[in-house]
Design a protein around this nucleic acid. Sequence first.
DNA 1: CTGTTAGCGCATTCAA
DNA 2: TTGAATGCGCTAACAG
Lengths: 341, 341
Amino acid sequence: MSQNKEITIYDIAKSLNISPATVSRGLKDHPAINKDTKKKIIDAAQKMGYRHNTFASNLRRQRTNILGVIVPRLNSSFTSDVIAGMEKTANEAGFNLVISQSLETMKKEVANANTMFNNRVDGLLVSLAYDTTDIQHLENFINKNIPVIFFDRVYDHEKCPSIKIDNYKAAYEITAHLISQGCKKIAHITGNQLRNVYQDRFNGYKQALADHAIPLNEKHVFINDLSGKAGAETAEKILYMNDRPDGVFSANDTCAINCMQVLMKNGISIPQDIAFAGFNNDPTSTIIEPNLTSVNYKGFEMGEVAARILIGHLNNNYDLQLTHTLMLRHELIMRDSSLRK
Amino acid sequence: MSQNKEITIYDIAKSLNISPATVSRGLKDHPAINKDTKKKIIDAAQKMGYRHNTFASNLRRQRTNILGVIVPRLNSSFTSDVIAGMEKTANEAGFNLVISQSLETMKKEVANANTMFNNRVDGLLVSLAYDTTDIQHLENFINKNIPVIFFDRVYDHEKCPSIKIDNYKAAYEITAHLISQGCKKIAHITGNQLRNVYQDRFNGYKQALADHAIPLNEKHVFINDLSGKAGAETAEKILYMNDRPDGVFSANDTCAINCMQVLMKNGISIPQDIAFAGFNNDPTSTIIEPNLTSVNYKGFEMGEVAARILIGHLNNNYDLQLTHTLMLRHELIMRDSSLRK
DNA sequence: CTGTTAGCGCATTCAA
DNA sequence: TTGAATGCGCTAACAG
């Protein structure tokens, strides 16, 4: 096994007494190529230990076969599922993923987008940071017709498809569930209303209340960063309230769980005194006692779908505009934290 | 802003009436370049909207500036911390990461390694799958002098540095801690002894027992895949034992937590009846009640260090052989699950 | 300090 | 169905 010398199509060509162009064609699905020639080429390539040089190919074809991914953070259960799904799909289609995290700040998101731009990714998969206000930093891509696809935390833009779940409906369902369990004063913990996921969930919550003739109590709406810390702080607030809620719907599980922990430490019974529901079906939902009712949606599948749409577009198999918004399925998982009956 | 035409160094050269070579140098830290010329070049590049073409550069330099990463799975708290650390370091050094997961099987690990090889990564960062028996699939790299660095789940190979923590010592400490809390019959749950992390932890446990004159009870050693399910099954076994342990040291937190849950549901008090300790300091350690004593080690830092060593080597700043094994710090975090006094 | 030149490996146009 | 020729954009000798 030679250590240093890479085999090229020229080497194969020489050994077979044919032209490099033919070898290049033989290695692909080129239509105009004799079957036998093709087989000969592939066999020789195999035997000589040829490996395709992506970079030369990229340079020549003016494509990189790289998909850029920008996520708020890599180390969350949901995100890593998404990435795993993307990796699988991309891999199968011969694409590589370059992944970066915004750490929930627009500033780093902008920097990441610029790096991706310079790296000439063929397309971009984006889930927005907590505080991103606009997508100026993605205009470079859009202007150059480099496809940008949003997932989960999306942005409404004519040229960019979105893949998400029906957050409004899920929130409606989970709120209605709490009501069906006898809750009459349901608090809501949510995040920055710039992000569709939190806005939609808030709206679903409000509509469910309205439909059941329950007035919205503004004191029972908590807007924060949905961190564990924020959950604990919310619990403190609830403890000091005259008019305590008898149910809490938190827009994510982390926040719900930390809130529950503090409440329980202070003698509140869940679900008897206060019922709880979260969102995301984090693995922690089944560790907290009582187990947390939540909304499950498949990150892995979302990753697969997002990558598939992007790759399909790049391969000109179908048009981005056709899939402007894609809604994936979700499911409500009822657990002890909300079951009072 | 033109949509289609990319600016090249030739365009800049022409507009400045200098040679492309000078432009190429000006854009880098080339030593032999006039300061003013450099500034002129950088300004022009900026103004003209130049972006560096990595692929042409790669082709020419015969380097890809891509680091391959193979991990057992992306969606674990520890791994995603590691990846985040690698991403940060790589990014700062102008390298990209291509990440893939073996899903804990050697078969996929082999496939991933081959893909990486064909993608011509400049170096490889690997944490081995659960059942990997040998590293034949990495010989391609080693033969070609493409550096391979192991982290966490390492393999002893003369040419491949390893980055890990002192699993032996950590396990020794945590076992000694349980003993100090009055435990006299400490069980151990561990994984495939092919993996250094589990073997070392097992050895540390055994040595701690020996040093405290506690005989090893083989019935109290459980070898499984350390999944949550395995933890629950282990709990069932413990429940049916005549001679129940009064302490459990699990080689990871997931398994410990599921085991605790089942035991508690069956009336066992923790830590009074059975004290518990895990490993990894998973976020779930502070959600389970009582909170789980565990060993903390910084995945983010491990990722940073691994990437830094690899990049340092690639840039010929230092030699791989010098850092054959690098041991990072760990810390024992004592929580209620083990504190009986 | 700067310029000239050549070629990294491939895919494609055009011609045969 | 195949071949010849070209250039994608850059960098590194080498020469000045």
